[in-house]
Simulated assay, not measured.
Amino acid sequence: MDIRDLRYFCVAAETGHLGLAAQVLHLTQPAITKSIRRLEAEIGGRLFVPDGRRLQLTPAGKLMLERAQSVDQALRQAITDVRQEVEGFSGRLSLGASPLVAESLFPAIASAMRREAPGLILELSIKGSDALRADVLAGRVDMAVIPLQPPTPPELCVVPLLDDYLTVACAPGHPLLALPRIELADFCQFDWVLPSAHTLVRRRLDAIFLSNGHPVPKCRIEVNSVLGAPGLIWSSKLLGFTSRLSLHSSRFANRLQEIPHEQVQSARRIALIARQATLKDPIRSNAVNLIQSEAAAIFQDF
C-alpha cells in the first residue's frame, strides 16, 4: 500500500469531491481516481458511493478514513520527533511559576536551558498559582511550577519537586520566644503580617485557630505574596505566617527565626504541572527532566 494513496483518499473524503481533491493536491482528477481504485482493489470493497455530484463514504470508507488519519498523524509526528532528535533540543517552551518559585528556580533553569538546549526559545511567565493552573489547562502555558492545590484535574500530570512548609516566623527578641512552651492561644496575643484574606494560605491559617476555639490571628499588615513577607516581618517585628522556602531564599534568612508549632505548621507540595498531552512532545518531556534535575540541585539541602 502506497502512503500517498492513503493521503489522497483522506483529501477526497474530506472534500467529498474528486475535482476539489485534485485542486487541493495539485493533481489531475484521473490520478486521484486511480489512487482510490488501487485502495479499493487492495481492501476488496468500495470506499465511496456517488451521491449526485458528490462522494459519500461507505461503512468501509468511514473505517478506512479513521485509520488512515491515524496513520498520517503518526507519520507526521514521527518525522517531527526524528527531526528534533537530529537537530537537538530546540523549539519553543513556555514555562510559568509562582513568584516565590520563580525567584529560586528560574535563573537556574534559564542557565541550564542555555547550556543544554541553546536552540530553545524559553518563554517565562510569573503569575499566581490559580492563574497559572488555568493557563496550563487552557494551553496558554506548556507547564508551570506552583504550590499544589487540590483537587488536581485528571487531564493534568503532576511532577513533585519539593515539600515546602508554611510556618510562623519572627524577628529575634519577640516576646513569644521567651515562653518555655508556646500554646496556640499565645499566638492570639500578638499582631501579624499575613497573606491576603482571599488566599488559600490565609484561609488555612484562620481555619486552624477557629477549629480550636480561638479567634483568627490579628492582621496588621496584609501582603498578597509570601515573597514579600520576610522583609515585612523583620522590619515590623510582628509575627508572620510564611513559606519556609521564602524564609530560606530571602536576604533575611539569617535574621528571622522560625517558631515551629505542630498545630500551625503545615506542609504543601511544590510541583510541576502540565497537560498529559503536552508531555507526549519530546521537547517538553526533556524539559521536565531538566527542571527536575535543577530543582533537586537547588533544594537538596532544603
Rank of each mutant, 00 (worst) to 15 (best):
D2W: 08
D2G: 05
I3F: 14
D5G: 07
L6I: 10
L6S: 12
E14P: 04
G19T: 10
Q23A: 13
V24E: 12
I32R: 04
T33V: 15
I36T: 00
I36R: 03
R38S: 09
I43W: 06
R46V: 06
D51T: 12
D51R: 15
G52K: 11
Q56W: 11
L57Q: 05
T58W: 06
E66L: 07
R67F: 11
V71G: 03
Q73V: 05
I79E: 14
G88I: 05
R92A: 14
A97V: 01
S98F: 09
E103M: 10
L120Q: 00
L120P: 09
L124D: 04
S125N: 13
G128S: 12
D135C: 09
R140S: 11
V141A: 07
A144T: 02
A144C: 01
P147F: 02
P154Q: 05
P154R: 09
V158E: 10
L166P: 04
L166C: 15
C170L: 01
A171G: 06
P172V: 06
P175F: 09
L176Y: 08
L177H: 11
L179P: 05
P180G: 08
I182R: 04
L184P: 03
V193R: 02
L194S: 01
L200G: 11
G213A: 06
P217M: 08
K218A: 10
V223P: 00
V226P: 00
W234D: 11
W234A: 11
S236Q: 10
S236Y: 01
K237E: 15
L238M: 12
L238V: 04
R244F: 00
R244G: 05
S246T: 06
S246G: 13
L247M: 08
H248V: 13
S249R: 06
R255C: 08
R255D: 11
P260Q: 10
Q263N: 13
S266M: 12
R268A: 12
K280N: 14
R284P: 09
S285W: 03
N286S: 15
N286D: 13
E294A: 01
E294D: 01
F302K: 04
